[in-house]
Each structure stands twice: as C-alpha cells, then as structure tokens.
Amino acid sequence: MGLDGAWARAWLETSAAVVAEHRVELITLDRAIGDGDHGENLDRGFQAALAKAGDLAPDTTPADVLKLIATTLISTVGGAAGPLFGTAYLKAAGAVAGSDDLDADAVVTLLTAARDGIVLRGKAEPGDKTMIDAWTPAVDAAAAARDAGAGPAAVLVAAAAAAEGGAIATDPLVARKGRASYLGERAIGHRDPGAASTALLLRAAADVAGER
C-alpha cells in the first residue's frame, strides 16, 4: 500500500527532530564554507512548520503537508535554504496534489519535482557542490528502484542512500554556486551543508515510510 497524509506528517515530525539533532553539525559545515546559518535557519523553519501542523485537517493529504512545509520554510528561513527547500516542497506538493496513496511511481514523481524546483530556483548543475549533488543521485536511484519493482518505502530507502553518497561526494569539489564559490579551492575537503541536510531529510522520509 502507498504512502498517505499520515506518512507526510510523520516525515515532517521526524524531519524537525533530525534537523534539531543535527543543528550544530550543519552550522559547523556551513561555517567552514558559507555563512554559518544553515543549521539554525533550517531548524527554525522546521520547528515553525511543526507548530503549524496542528492546524491541518485529520484527513490531510501528503500534498497539503508538503505545501505547509514549503510556505513556512519560504517565510521563516532567511538564507538560501528557505527559497530552495521551499520551492522543492512546493513543486513536490504540486506533483502529487489530490493523492492520498502514493505508490512507487508517485514517490519518484515527488522527488523529481522537488529536484527540478531547486534547479529552477538555484540554477545549479551536478558537480557545483550544492544540494543538487544529493538530490540528483537520489532521484536517479529512486527511479532505478521503481523500475526494479520496489515499493514506495524501498524507493525512499534507495533515494536516501544515494543522497548520503552524493553529499559525501561533495567533499572534494570546488563550489561553483552560492557563498562557497567565493572560496575557490579552499572549499575542497568540506561537505556542502545543503547536500548534507538533503540527505538527512530523505533519510527521515525513508525511515518513517519503513515504520508504516
């Protein structure tokens, strides 16, 4: 069976918890090659979204939850992460609107729309040392898992693992987008904070899907 609004709510709750848990780690990553606010901003955004989740109707769909996260991140996260993740959740919401039973194909559609939204907003390409370096392998792995017959939870597990690999693979890169691009080769050896947080969020999605 597919993923429903309760899964999306659980994803939000776990995301908020995981971001809070990794707040200092994300700040440390961002301080090395950015402006140091990624952990704090994302934590504030997800806590705000969590606080608003109580207003959602009991029979809410995944798209409703994703849209709530999108608008909250956009309006409460000051850094680049607000518009980027906000656009990702917004496009994801649009891609699965009306459905309360997301199958493997719908999960791939959701992830693809999120990734495309970030590309549209930030104009980054793979290899630029951005969150796209986690999102793109995640989308590719999700599609491959679906093609191999995996269910929605297994598709998310494949996406999360690929995002984690993609985040690690940003370590040796020189940044071509964002604040880190000013650092040139000094960014080498540091992980992109947005790729790291992407991996955390997708792992949360997989974990809550697996528990259902």
């Binding site: 956009i74 000051g78 680049a80 607000g82 980027l84 907003r121 987008k177 964002g178 604040r179």
Partner: peptide
C-alpha cells in the same frame, strides 16, 4: 546583493 537575496526575491515574485 548576494545570491540568496536573489533566490528570495525570485521566490517572492512567484507568489
């Protein structure tokens, strides 16, 4: 000014 200001402005336009 910097990149994320552009992202915020473009997102604001969308809305």
């Amino acid at each position: 000014d910097l990149g994320s200001a552009i992202l915020t402005a473009e997102t604001a336009l969308d809305f």
